[in-house]
Amino acid sequence: MTALVYVIEDDDDVARLVVHALHEFGFLTETFRSGAAVLRRLQTERPELFIVDLGLPDMDGMALVREIGAMGNSGVLILTGRGHTVDRVMGLELGGDDYMVKPFEPRELVARVRSILRRRTAPGAGCGAPQRRYASFLGWTLDCAANVLRAADGAEHLLGTAETQVLRVFVERPHQILTREQLVGSRDLSPLDRSIDVRISRLRRKLEPDPQHPTLIKTVYGAGYLFAAAVSWS
């Protein structure tokens, strides 16, 4: 099935460039000039992926990324003129799967869209078969269908799509050293890309008694990370 992409961009020239590139490679698109417009549309249909500009006329794009992440499990590519590291980190922390700065190369944008969609549909991206919806470890339970992490006391944490993807890979492959590329789902990850570090840090803050001295998500220096817990499924 052809993927549907929502393009949220108030600059008509940029929106046309994005849409043209996506159509050239077979994607379906809908374009929105404001956050309110796309939120109204989401009441009736959700896409496979959002491309979100942070400089919207009616709301901050970061707030929109947060709302999108809370509403379901679609991919999010942030496309913005904000190139500061703090914006990039915040965007990824709030649920963005990737972050691109304008001006951009249309074919690179399409490649990143494809990469996000591949990661989300790859084997294990859905936490196994439908009967394996819940992954349990050390008193925690991950609801793979709802992106919800439940503590032993019943407290619930709604995870962003990027965090969920990393945790899904961990629970599918416990006690294995996983590279940054395996966790992000990209073979061409730049050595300077710190998105995986952001996601690991957020997961540690939720799961570890002492995030500064992790015992569950361990760093294997020079190799990657290891999830040190037995996992059961239901």
Rank of each mutant, 00 (worst) to 15 (best):
E156M: 03
R204K: 11
E156C: 11
D87C: 02
T80P: 14
A3Y: 12
G126D: 10
G222A: 02
R180G: 05
K218F: 05
F104S: 06
R194A: 15
L79D: 14
H84S: 15
I68S: 03
R41K: 10
A135M: 01
V65A: 10
G35W: 01
N147W: 14
V184M: 11
R40C: 00
R16Q: 15
L39F: 07
F104A: 07
V65I: 14
L22W: 10
I8T: 05
L226W: 00
P123S: 07
R46A: 15
A129P: 14
R150A: 05
G35R: 02
G124M: 12
L54H: 05
L178N: 02
A36Q: 13
V38R: 03
C127T: 07
T2M: 01
V198D: 08
V18Q: 04
A151H: 11
G55D: 12
L22S: 06
L22D: 10
L117R: 05
G154A: 08
Q182W: 10
T121L: 10
R46C: 09
Y99D: 07
I217C: 06
T31C: 08
R180N: 05
T219P: 00
A135C: 02
Y221E: 07
L203I: 00
Y134L: 12
A63V: 09
D58V: 13
V38I: 09
L149H: 09
S34I: 07
V7R: 00
I78S: 13
L117C: 05
P211T: 02
L216T: 06
L94E: 10
E163N: 10
L158I: 08
H213W: 00
F25C: 08
I200N: 09
G81I: 13
V110L: 13
R199Q: 13
L138D: 08
A63Y: 12
K218T: 08
C144S: 12
H157T: 06
D197H: 12
K102D: 09
R205P: 00
F50E: 09
Q212A: 14
E208R: 02
D188K: 08
N147E: 02
L226D: 00
L192P: 01
L192T: 13
L149M: 04
V169I: 14
E156R: 13
S234Y: 03
P209D: 10
R119P: 00
R119M: 11
R88N: 09
S232Y: 04
L22C: 07
V86N: 11
V89C: 07
A3H: 11
G222S: 03
V65P: 03
A37E: 12
L28V: 02
I68F: 12
L178C: 02
D188V: 14
A37H: 02
D12N: 13
R82P: 10
H213F: 01
